[in-house]
């Protein structure tokens, strides 16, 4: 009875091909990174994409895993941790040519989360201040899973609810609504899930300050003692003492 595992029924390429067949114009691009398939779709194709992923005969992603959002901001401020992540500063320094999306441009030419130079099918992070909504579904017993992704502008983010397609999205959308302030059109009841009724603000926005960090900034080296030299020497001996940051290719 005790059997070894079976390989996934579809590999990433097949999933991607199926997605581009089925989603048509709604699909912006399909990114395969580290073996995982992410389909970026247009916001207006969000519900259709979810329904396609669920009902398509070869994908059959009937298992709803989660739905959430990412708040992308240009600068890594208001986080309280910018002191530590000098990499963030490096990132800022590396992309000085990309200032925040001009508001009028967004209004005129439509919302452009990625620069024109972005090559479809490769992983990149969006520019400017915006929301990315993600949903993940997988196909039970077959090892097939898909992440759907779409971009929303930072001002009055609004998207259709997929609670009709996946019943499980109901609570995830409520959470997303209170945490990011994203409106889900057609959701049966967007009441508070976690937060008290009188809570102000949306905690997972990058602009939302984390109280504890406001009182005591945390770069780690303020309230943490330095590693004693003898232990540091031992660690160096044990783990080879790689230079900091030397690993990022």
């Amino acid at each position: 009875m005790r059997l070894p595992p079976t390989a996934p029924e579809l590999d990433a390429g097949e999933i991607a091909a199926r997605l581009s067949d089925g989603l048509g114009d709604g699909l912006v691009e399909t990114v395969i990174a580290r073996g995982q398939v992410t389909a970026r779709v247009r916001p207006d194709a969000w519900v259709d994409a979810a329904r396609f992923v669920k009902t398509d005969d070869s994908l059959r992603c009937t298992f709803f895993s989660w739905l959430s959002a990412i708040h992308w901001i240009e600068a890594d401020e208001g986080l309280g941790n910018s002191e530590l992540s000098d990499a963030a500063e490096e990132a800022d320094a590396a992309e000085p040519a990309e200032p925040a999306e001009p508001a009028d441009a967004a209004e005129e030419a439509g919302f452009q989360p990625y620069p024109a130079s972005h090559e479809p099918g490769t992983y990149a992070q969006p520019q400017g201040n915006l929301f990315q909504v993600l949903a993940h579904a997988s196909s039970p017993m077959r090892g097939v899973s898909v992440t759907l992704k779409t971009e929303l502008p930072e001002e009055s983010p609004k998207i259709a609810s997929i609670a009709e397609v996946f019943a499980g999205a109901n609570w995830h959308e409520r959470e997303c609504h209170e945490m990011f302030g994203i409106e889900f059109d057609g959701h049966p009841d967007l009441s508070r899930l976690y937060l008290p009724e009188d809570f102000e603000g949306h905690p997972l926005l990058k602009s939302f300050p984390l109280g504890a960090r406001e009182i005591k900034p945390w770069p780690g080296n303020v309230d943490v003692e330095a590693i004693p030299p003898e232990i540091e020497a031992r660690l160096d001996a044990e783990f080879g003492g790689g230079s900091s940051g030397g690993d990022s290719e």
Partner: peptide, 12 residues
Amino acid sequence: KVPKVIKVPEGE
């Protein structure tokens, strides 16, 4: 073998 200060490259 892991660097002492871990910095994770860009990605999701």
